[in-house]
């Protein structure tokens, strides 16, 4: 890029990126024209406002509201401060909270241990250019196009106790969505069904980018297929692996639509996100209490986000 003659010839109209790179050659940003400065200011300000307005403000407001008992009605001046009471209530006396945490963890574990590896496995298979791989690829990717809410409906046809396909085929009368011991697994199958296709596509894209000479070299050295994958391909795909990991974590934290469609996140399908919605959005309007739940969820998300960012930044420094 930097040796493109156009940029060399006219520094006054060079892009900010090019200028920054030239900074290393001793030219300062004071060479920027007025237009450049306006453009840069806009490019910084607009996203900044968006991020502050749409991300930071709601996040801080949630944390602030979690210390109140606001019921969503009336002016903000009437909000009463209750300190940490919402948090102690959530943990001590709110029965759905513990199942919700367990279900979120179960969700993460199921996606991480079963769905994600299976998706990666399918990607490796499809990468072998087997016959009809395009067809399989499309078939497996199809569920990803559907929203999770829609997937809830699709699977309802399969899981319905009285009219469902599954009970008709098995001759059972299991209440797949209603039985609190069963429904979380039934829902996880539906969620995994979609997740597998997503991971497969991500990983397939990564695999296509692996330099074939690496595999050839491994083959020449006499490595088996499995050894080649685990010792050569997998380490090379580290950036993709991290993305897959992050996607898995995000998917399990934001899991919501599916359980909401099934039974509003009650009776065995409690998830933190569903509890937040029940408390904040419904007729209940326990804004303060719901915000405390949301804050707890934010804290958990922050842990994962921090780990991810730390890894990515270390990667960039190298």
């Amino acid at each position: 890029m930097s040796d493109l003659p156009l940029i060399q010839a006219d520094p006054a109209v060079s892009s900010p990126a090019a200028t920054a790179r030239k900074g290393g050659r001793g030219r300062g940003p004071r060479l920027l024209s007025r237009t450049d400065r306006v453009v840069i200011a806009l490019m910084v300000l607009v996203p900044l406002l968006l991020v502050v307005g749409l991300v930071w403000f709601p996040a801080v407001a949630t944390v602030a509201l979690s210390g109140t008992n606001w019921d969503g009605i009336g002016p903000i001046s009437e909000i009463e401060w209750v300190g940490g009471r919402n948090y102690s209530d959530v943990i001590n006396i709110y029965p759905p909270f513990v199942p919700a945490v367990q279900n979120n963890l179960l969700w993460l574990a199921a996606l991480f241990v079963v769905a994600t590896p299976f998706g990666m496995f399918l990607a490796v298979l499809l990468d072998k250019e087997i016959r009809g791989s395009r067809f399989y690829q499309t078939a497996l990717y199809l569920p990803v196009v559907l929203s999770l809410a829609l997937i809830g409906f699709v699977w309802q046809l399969i899981y319905s106790r009285d009219q469902g396909l599954l009970n008709a085929a098995l001759g059972t009368s299991t209440d797949w969505y209603g039985d609190p011991d069963v429904n979380i697994w039934a829902v996880l199958v539906a969620a995994g069904w979609r997740h597998v296709g997503y991971i497969m596509l991500l990983y397939l894209a990564g695999l296509k980018g692996v330099d074939p000479s690496l595999r050839e070299a491994a083959a020449v050295d006499g490595a088996s297929e499995a050894t080649t994958f685990f010792k050569v391909v997998f380490p090379v795909l580290r950036p993709i692996n991290i993305i897959v990991l992050v996607v898995t974590v995000i998917e399990s934290l934001r899991a919501f639509d599916l359980v909401w469609v099934v039974n509003k996140g009650r009776n065995g399908l409690e998830l933190i996100s569903a509890l937040v919605t029940q408390n904040v959005v419904g007729e209940a309007s326990r804004i303060g209490f719901g915000s405390a739940l949301a804050t707890l969820m934010l804290v958990v998300s922050l842990v994962f986000i921090t780990v991810y960012l730390a890894t990515v930044m270390r990667e960039n420094r190298k």
């Binding site: 759905p96 009650r266 009776n267 408390n279 419904g282 209940a284 309007s285 326990r286």
Partner: peptide
């Protein structure tokens, strides 16, 4: 109160039935 009915009593009664 609606908040009591929907966030406490619904899960509690379902828990009882379970």
């Amino acid at each position: 109160r609606p908040d009591f009915a929907s966030t406490v009593m619904i899960p509690a009664i379902q828990q009882f039935i379970k």
